[in-house]
Amino acid sequence: MWSEAEKTGAEPGDRRSMALLIDEALGYVYPAALRAVAAVGVADELAGGPRTVAELAGQTGVHEESLHRILRLVATRGVVEELDDGRFLLTELGQALRSDVPLSARPAVLMLTDHTLWLPSGEMERCLREGGSVFAGIFGMPFFDYFAMDEQTATSFHNGMAAVSDAENLPVAACYDFPEAGVVVDVGGGHGGFLLEVLRRRTGLEGVLFDEAHVVAGHRLDIDEIKGRWRTAPGDFFSEVPRGDVYLIKRILHDWDDEQCAAILRNCRRAMAPGGRILVVDAVVPRGNTPHQAKTLDLLLMSALVGKERTEADFARLFAASGLRLSRVVPTGTVVSIVEATPTDPAA
């Protein structure tokens, strides 16, 4: 008798590979389901304990059968659990999807699955064939121009980035030996979450939160712990930045191409006090086949923006073009590292 492999000419390993790749190709469906439950607030409704699908559908105002089918998939990833009686329970992992917990992933999930990132990533083949971002081809204008005219999308982006940063800010600030005194300028600092953690650790430091006016208006620095040691400064980092001793540039450079990044860095270099330094807080793409979130985010940046995640060598070249040198890379235990730059000619 012929074996199944002999009948088809396929080896068992071939079948496993085919099955695995089919599963991988279906992978995009899960984040769509995760977005759906995040958008309608299912986790918040489950905070008090297990609920039936009918109860959840009534509380969230959605279609009952569709909700059940979506939750059934989300349960396979451990965010919720379907109990024997058909009710759904929010797991320990799923607690982070609630909107009322200190470190909520919900804004980040909604940002990363927003149509402004989702649609360009679906057109990645065009990036491959044509080069460059496909965002303008879909939305009619570049990424940040679109945000400037769409308040809802801009709010989702800034809230999402703040949520991503919230989980990083304390460990990143804790792993760097900031000076005891001086002025720290947070360039493109958003709502100031990272600057807040830096000022908490060094009571002799003063801080400047520098970003667009509508962004710094939503700052979170007005707390007694750092009272009198900070100010906001609205502006455009492509034009100029405030004078300071230490410049924080967290999750900013990866949005822009090398020429634009060099413009930001040169502005910091010109405004920097003697003995100053620049701390670029971004992912550093590892060499080889090591999995790293930066390699995934890099493709989102490729399809939607003009920037990219960079290797250590990329940062060294970027700094050299900006009158700076890479002095060291400090791991933080998070996705991002601190890439420290100092002037090549401190007297210039």
Rank of each mutant, 00 (worst) to 15 (best):
P274I: 10
L128Q: 11
E55H: 03
A341E: 02
R231F: 12
A348K: 00
D245N: 13
G160N: 04
E130Q: 03
V101K: 05
S239G: 14
S66V: 05
G244K: 14
R266Q: 11
F238P: 11
T311W: 00
R287Q: 15
G13P: 11
D100T: 12
S104W: 15
W118N: 10
G140W: 12
I70R: 01
D186T: 03
S239Y: 14
I252L: 04
V215A: 15
M161S: 12
Q59K: 14
P142A: 07
I226F: 12
G228E: 10
H219G: 01
H158P: 01
L83C: 07
D150Y: 03
V216C: 00
A163F: 13
Y30N: 00
A313I: 01
L103D: 15
A217L: 06
V187W: 15
E65T: 07
T332P: 09
A233I: 07
C175W: 11
L318T: 06
N159P: 14
G9I: 00
L110D: 00
S156V: 00
S165N: 12
F178K: 14
I138Y: 03
V184D: 15
A304P: 03
F319C: 05
D298C: 04
E240T: 09
V40R: 02
R328E: 04
T76E: 12
A57N: 06
L26S: 11
